[in-house]
């Protein structure tokens, strides 16, 4: 790991200030389950590492007004084991329980996961599939506008994710085909029936999370696993690597969508 200047701000305002003054060399760390391995491999060389770990206000789960709001520093284990999340959005608790391994879940945070926007991460499917809103220190960003591409988001330099709020759906299910070694998603699907219609979000398959509008339309008419039968996603722009071909990923989208709807009931 290259050297960096470690900072641990005591308030969100101080963190934002530190991040702005560090400029391009500033990097935020929360649980560090992606960033620390990246630093160890010298794939990143921040001048300043700004640790959000001291901002205790950013951790915690609230359920009110038909929304589950999860602070950015809340760990995956906390989301998975939260009785409130399990009751309001069991699919979200299940998603969190399937991330990485127990030790990763004890450190990794929702804010870090969404800000990192890994194409194979679980949370992007949860955020987009449930039509969540990402809160930052400057504004709120709707899920559909948040993830903009491979490891890229709508976050501006100096902007810090503070929470993600999920409207409680009528029904939701999550199904994941994990890479057997890393537990990242080869393909995973969050399908939800919400007050604003059906949403089907896919992670792992493409460079960034995406919705399958054709499945959403079919499920809007008939919320049943069979409704997505025969709806194909074109492999043209999907990911291809040693783990799975684009064609296989395209196939898995249909299988995972079906399983997600089965899980939702």
């Amino acid at each position: 790991m290259y050297e960096f200047n470690y900072q641990r701000p005591k308030s969100l305002a101080d963190a934002a200030k530190a991040l702005k003054s560090a400029g391009d060399g500033g990097k935020l760390v929360a649980g560090g389950q992606t960033l620390i391995p990246t630093l160890k491999q010298r794939l990143a060389q921040p001048s300043d590492l700004i640790d959000l770990g001291g901002l205790k206000d950013l951790a915690g789960i609230k359920v009110e007004g038909g929304k589950v709001t999860i602070g950015a520093l809340t760990t995956h284990a906390e989301v998975a084991h939260s009785a409130a999340v399990q009751k309001a959005i069991p699919a979200l608790a299940a998603l969190a329980e399937g991330i990485g391994d127990p030790q990763v879940r004890n450190r990794g945070t929702i804010g870090g996961s969404v800000a990192n926007a890994d194409p194979a991460a679980d949370y992007p499917a949860g955020v987009v599939g449930l039509g969540a809103t990402v809160h930052t220190n400057e504004r709120t960003i709707a899920a559909d506008q948040f993830f903009t591409g491979l490891f890229t988001t709508a976050l501006k330099p100096g902007e810090i994710v503070t929470a993600v709020s999920f409207p409680v759906p009528q029904k939701a299910g999550y199904a994941k085909f994990p890479n057997p070694a890393s537990r990242y998603c080869v393909v995973a699907v969050m399908a939800a029936k919400t007050a604003d219609g059906v949403r089907v979000a896919v992670t792992g398959a493409g460079p960034s999370v995406f919705r399958v509008k054709e499945m959403e339309a079919a499920l809007g008419k008939n919320w049943a696993p069979a409704a997505v039968d025969g709806i194909k996603v074109a492999p043209a722009n999907l990911n291809q690597d040693i783990h799975a071909s684009a064609e296989y990923r395209a196939h898995l989208v249909g299988v995972m969508a079906r399983r997600a709807i089965e899980a939702a009931g």
Partner: peptide
């Protein structure tokens, strides 16, 4: 590389990979 778990310790009662956490 955060995969094998030989470095697992408890921090405030929770198991973590001590190779994937800064001492600070």
């Amino acid at each position: 590389t955060s995969q094998c778990g030989a470095c697992v310790v408890h921090v405030d009662g929770k198991s973590v990979k001590s190779c994937t956490m800064l001492a600070v």
